[in-house]
Amino acid sequence: MANNFTLDFEKPIIELEDKIAEMKQLGEELDIEQDIASLEKKVDTLKRNIYAGLTRWQRVQIARHPERPITSDYLENTFDSFVELHGDRKFRDDAAIMGGMATIGEHQVMFVGHQKGRDTKSNILRNFGMPNPEGYRKALRLFKLAEKFNRPIVCFLDTPGAYPGMEAEERGQAEAIADNLIKMAQLKVPIIVVVIGEGASGGALGIGIGDRVLMLENAWYSVIAPESCSSILWKTWDFKEQAAEALKLTAPDLKEHNIIDDIIKEPLGGAHKNPDDMFAIMRRTLLKELKLFKKYDPKKLIEERHEKFLNMGVWEE
């Protein structure tokens, strides 16, 4: 059924689906099974066509869909247990980054992820998933804990950016992110990073250095959000579609440029269309990834991590 959260390009699908639902009700009295079947086929083709031809801006919209699963949904539905750990032990607890001891299958991992809210109230609590310095420092504390007890790290990225506020500056937002980058580069345990929604700039990268970096099919990851890019380069907010195209910020783009290791397929139409399938896919993926690091040599692990990031960039000489 159509609801407030229907994206423009989803409307033809929703209309057809509504029609099928209506016909099915009528179908109990009339013999229109064949018509229903043909319409269902039609909607299936329509979906495939629409979702295969999504523009980059449309993917950004899916990545921000209000019903798209967020970090806490995955914690509940893909992991077997989770003990949340709070605070950076220096200033306070930042609710925009969630972390703790998680179990998935036979693996005990340290989980750290950006946490958005679901509604106004929870979004205010979570600061819309925009961390302050203490969020990054909490993450680092947990990374160090993982290293001490030899547990792999799983990071979920989903943020519109690090919070650009006054207090964030006073408490060293730049230093907090920078410190995580160098410390993550030196961690002696495996790090698996998954971009599940929005990967905006340094705020995302601040918990994003990994041995494996994966991205959901409809997530985006770039140096800036399309709207802000439009406002800087076009001097108006109106060119977000063009900015999204120019930024080449989708998972297929990033795979092509060797920024990410793999794309995680989403259910047709996006994770929000079938969250249960999404959670199952995520579980399978994480189990497979963690298996890769069942045995590893920490020295080699770090060397390869360094190599991976040192190779990023394109230049002429």
Partner: peptide, 16 residues
């Protein structure tokens, strides 16, 4: 900005 995510990754690269 004109190097988008590749420029973002230079933060990682220089830190490494």
């Amino acid at each position: 900005m004109q190097e988008a995510v590749i420029s973002l990754m230079q933060m990682a690269k220089t830190s490494v």
